[in-house]
């Protein structure tokens, strides 16, 4: 189907053949990738032995029979990093459209300053986090 798409898009110049061709190739690669995994597991299915035993289906863990359930507690403190990351990632993606235009004619130093103000705000945030000891690991 993706192939069809590629063909039909190529036939239709109005749709912008380069762009759609590139992503049609991506779609085709997805098909190839899935095919690869399928072939690998089909071969595996044909080659592998199947000898079930209840011991084998026990969780391996550290080699000793598991105690308790499949859940262990860990540091909730990691979670702050997750928040920080999401916020900074949203920030960072703005750099990319900016990077493509800021040095071209008609933007210049003004755009640079705009971005520095933007990043400056977040750097202040990072400093605040640092000051507050969020980045320290106690």
């Amino acid at each position: 189907m993706v192939g069809q798409q590629a063909a039909s898009v190529a036939a239709d110049p109005a749709a912008g053949s380069g762009y759609f061709d590139a992503y049609a190739a991506m779609g085709l690669l997805a098909v190839v990738g899935v095919l690869f995994v399928t072939v690998a597991f089909t071969a595996n299915r044909l080659l592998r032995p199947v000898v079930y035993s209840p011991e084998k289906l026990l969780a391996y863990e550290c080699g000793v029979d598991p105690v308790g359930e499949d859940w262990a507690h860990t540091q909730v403190r990691y979670y702050v990093y997750a928040f920080l990351y999401v916020i900074f990632a949203v920030d960072a993606i703005y750099l990319f459209p900016w990077a493509t235009v800021f040095a071209t004619a008609g933007y210049g130093a003004g755009t640079l300053v705009e971005m520095f103000v933007f990043i400056g705000f977040l750097a202040v945030g990072l400093l605040y986090a640092w000051k507050k000891g969020v980045l320290e690991w106690t």
């Binding site: 403190r77 979670y79 702050v80 928040f83 920080l84 916020i87 949203v90 920030d91 703005y94 705009e114 103000v117 933007f118 990043i119 705000f121 977040l122 202040v124 945030g125 605040y128 986090a129 507050k132 969020v134």
Partner: peptide
């Protein structure tokens, strides 16, 4: 630019909560 202030507020909020 306003967005950066919003993000900063979110950042501070997350830190204060944590």
């Amino acid at each position: 630019e306003a967005l950066s202030v919003l993000l900063l507020a979110a950042l501070v909020g997350a830190i204060v909560l944590s």
